[in-house]
């Protein structure tokens, strides 16, 4: 059986680029939302990984780590019935209407 794309151990690959960055507030919030919603039993770490793995190698190459995570958290919350896709679409439209950058699109200027 072929292994799944995410099982990368032993695959050929190029040099390790020693890249790192300080996590932005929105990235830390994604992490916090994952930690809190799984701690409250809405889904599990395995469910997060199931969506991440289903997103496939293209998403791995084109999206950043927390971009993939928020996608997977969102999918699991919809599956858990926490909110509907219609509620989400309306909320995203509301967020985008507030402003063109993260600070102005966030209530309380990004601190709240």
């Amino acid at each position: 059986m072929d292994k799944s794309w995410h099982d990368m151990g032993g695959d050929p690959a190029g040099p390790v680029i020693p890249a790192e960055h300080d996590f932005a507030l929105w990235e830390k919030r994604v992490d916090a939302l994952f930690m809190l919603t799984t701690a409250k039993g809405l889904f599990t770490v395995d469910a997060l990984r199931r969506v991440l793995e289903d997103m496939g190698p293209e998403a791995f190459e084109t999206m950043t780590y927390y971009e993939r995570w928020i996608t997977a958290v969102n999918r699991n919350l919809i599956e858990a019935g926490v909110y509907s896709t219609a509620e989400l679409a309306a909320k995203i439209a509301e967020v985008k209407a507030r402003g063109a950058d993260y600070g102005t699109a966030s209530l309380g200027g990004g601190d709240g």
């Binding site: 971009e67 928020i70 969102n74 985008k96 993260y102 699109a105």
Partner: peptide, 16 residues
């Protein structure tokens, strides 16, 4: 500029 992922994070957080 606000990215799709950032807008999604704000939306998910506010809905929760």
């Amino acid at each position: 500029p606000l990215t799709e992922a950032q807008a999604l994070e704000i939306a998910v957080r506010e809905l929760l």
